[in-house]
Nucleic acid binder design. Sequence first.
DNA 1: ATATTGTGTGTAACCGGTTACACATTTTAA
DNA 2: TTAAAATGTGTAACCGGTTACACACAATAT
Lengths: 327, 327
Amino acid sequence: MANIRDVAKEAGVSVASVSRYLNSKGYISEDTKLKIKRAIEKLEYIPNQIARSLTTKQTNFIGLIVPDITNPFFPELARAVEDIALSYGYTVVLCNSDEKSEKEIHYIDTLKQKYVAGFIVTTNQLRASHYEDLKVPLVALDRMIHESIPTISSNNVEGALMGTNYLLEKGCQNIVFMRGPKGLGPADDRLTGFLQAVEGKEVQTHIIESPFHFGESEKIARQFLTDIKGVDGIFASTDVSAAGALKAAHSLGISVPNELQIMGFDGISLGGMLTPGLTTIAQDIYKMGALATRILIKIIEEIEIDERVIQVPVELVERGTTRSEQR
Amino acid sequence: MANIRDVAKEAGVSVASVSRYLNSKGYISEDTKLKIKRAIEKLEYIPNQIARSLTTKQTNFIGLIVPDITNPFFPELARAVEDIALSYGYTVVLCNSDEKSEKEIHYIDTLKQKYVAGFIVTTNQLRASHYEDLKVPLVALDRMIHESIPTISSNNVEGALMGTNYLLEKGCQNIVFMRGPKGLGPADDRLTGFLQAVEGKEVQTHIIESPFHFGESEKIARQFLTDIKGVDGIFASTDVSAAGALKAAHSLGISVPNELQIMGFDGISLGGMLTPGLTTIAQDIYKMGALATRILIKIIEEIEIDERVIQVPVELVERGTTRSEQR
DNA sequence: ATATTGTGTGTAACCGGTTACACATTTTAA
DNA sequence: TTAAAATGTGTAACCGGTTACACACAATAT
């Protein structure tokens, strides 16, 4: 493997010139450029990134911190991040935080040690100050950490508003809103949207907390579907929860969407695999991931960014868990 | 940030001693050890991995190459890999190959450039020789690349045999086997198992090729469910395909499991989310990932490994797409 | 008593880049 | 015409580790 000194020798110039050529930094004459170019081709020289990192204190790695890659929302996000990262020459490091602050801290520390270029964080177990003190480029995805940190999220309030209104239009009178864990940004926002939508309306509502986990959601849904009489609509703040609710309805012999209509939130592909297909407020997950990655790379490469907080619009996807005709 | 020379000075020893201490290599007296230990603690010294990599030509990164993280089989695998890697101090780099050899080569080359410690490969677009020439620790997961490369896979033949026999027991007389892409190891093995099981039996069988993709599988299933009369069983060589088939059956008004029984293969959690729940041949996905990672790390750390090819047993999971009672 | 082996430590080169600084030459400005 | 600015290039130190080699001394073998 040729190194920069071999190239310099072959081209008959100094290593500094080769380095300048490689990084398009400082002055080099056309003549020298050509000589270096030829030498590089001849020796099939590829710069050693590790050596480079030692002085620049930066690698081409991007840390992607997710709570759990097993939750179907995140692979779709990861896919987008990976695609864009690759196209800019970056590589993504996968980190499952399990929503545990120790794991999150551990990853951030070790990766910072290894000079990662930046982080995309979809979890926020840590106090905002911890992230601010980091001095490493960082963008928040899905969940807002702090105003000072660029954030990409969906318009959750708007989405929940839209979804609720749709259920109301479809005739729901007694709606359970399965809210996500308290204190979690998007979950709280979705609840806000729901409450705004039902405010002053003649509907019965029940707010029930449920984690973003299929099995748990199913259990919780089965519980409230037996306890509360006359529930004719469920708005779950996650498709996974909605899937759990649908399963629960099926196992209780409740017909969807005739007796009970269900609305999800997320737009993961799971929704289309269920029967009936899940009506949902779809986020543009790929776009969110792609956008976050582009912004992170801009920050890393010190390119001016225009907006710090971006809301990606959501879209209502009508499938089979809601009625096609109004009653 | 303190470096090794600071520590050496603080401890009143040479950098070589500190390095020996850190790597438990060569001779050091107890006295010196203690002095170094104190200095490290006092200065809160953390060795710089990048600098280390420059000479050792190795990092703590493990490259995980998957066809597509969006396919629900792979996040479950990735999760296992990540968990085990973390516990041994390694970090995983996610690579989506999209089943494209260029992308696979690109990742392998760039990561090798960056001195990754090794690869876990769940795809094999390249000729085996390419992997052998790599001179980087590598284990194959799910798909066998070559006998010389350690491989973790499920007992696919056995599983398909088991699944088919089960369908036969449940009374299926006219079975469609949705085989995966040709030339793909596990897909071929599963077909082999199926053929072995029906060999000489009084059953009608149809082998239909289908990619491991929900939408495609659904379309293909809808097609053959209308074209072929009297199909009463489907064995899909992937849960995702089975999910597609189930959806197709539903949309055609075919009752599952009364008129049509469906068996999947993989054991991804999606199976349990569907209604009815998918009966499937479950691989121990987590175990496969964990095992592959442990073996890779052994190879990296030059610890003797006992077996080069490991088959993880599969298990029949009975859910709702097959009948509970025999007819 | 001497040769051999084992233990313990330090110096300095090396891994492969980047870059501050010095210096030379050319171009532009005053 | 001369000072200042722009352009072009090379030397050598530096990033922060690892390690070959030399050397000193103690323990053991002959």
